[in-house]
Amino acid sequence: MNKHKKGGAFLPLAPYSLWSVLFIVVPLIFVAYYAFTDEAFRFTTENITRFFTATSNIQAEDGTMQEVRTYLVIFGRSLKLAVISTFICLLMGYPMAYIMARAKERTQKILVTLIMIPMWMNFLIRTYAWMTILQDTGIINNILGFFGIQPIHIIGTETAVIIGMVYDYFPYMILPIYSIMAKMDTKLLEAARDLGCNSFGVLRRVIFPLSLPGVISGITMVLIPSISTFYISQKLGNGKFFLIGDAIEGQYIANNLHFAAAIAFILMVILLVCMGVVKYFTSKTYGGE
């Protein structure tokens, strides 16, 4: 058997190996290269320092002007909105995944398909739909007006951006948690119950710890796209809430490729560190398995 298994790997693997070096590895090196060079491709750390030190004036809530570190504020805002959205997705998605995993097999299939349908619609269109719903003259305010309630102003607020993020990335939270829960051995739950756990105890002591890998992959799958998005904030935030993705896109549009690369580079490094930490803790918890 070894005789057959040894050879013949080079030829089928060669095109992809070359491709992945050229179009996965080299581009990442180029991000770093652009980040640390100026227009004439001379080495500089200016782009990186600009990210941390550039300032601009914004109007504070009490009306006075304040000088702030532009990109640090933008990054902090991206992080804040992304974390809130991810948390809401988890809060809404976890019970849904649990319900789905407990349903009959046929129902499970239908529910999974239904959850995937919005995912397969273009995310620009989904975001756009929310824009029309949340508008000042939109459907929500029409319904409120019908009941004689004062119209509410949502579009152009952080709430609108969060709604957009939650809506766009919600399925990415449900599906990984569901797929872990569906595979869970129901005998463990019965055993816990036999040993005196009530429903909440089973959930807390058995189901939740076992579903943790799904929760972690759900969190990463929502957090990463929502921290780096650039369309949602433009449409639902009326461009008032500049996010890190908007900053990168803006620099790209302005043809400041070196600074765009610097922001991308910093974002990448931060995400890598975060994922490294998560991986370290999960491998510590699940190391024995």
């Binding site: 179009f23 996965i24 080299v26 581009p27 990442l28 180029f30 991000v31 290269y33 652009y34 990463t220 990463i224 796209p225 921290i227 780096s228 650039f230 993705g245 990168i248 896109e249 790209y252 490729l257 765009a260 690369a261 991308a264 974002l267 990448m268 995400l271 994922m275």
Partner: peptide
């Protein structure tokens, strides 16, 4: 890498090349 990296970084990095 392409699955984990945010789309915007994948896009920017290839564009640079």
């Amino acid at each position: 890498i392409p699955m984990i990296n945010p789309d915007i970084i994948t896009g920017i990095s290839m564009m640079l090349v």
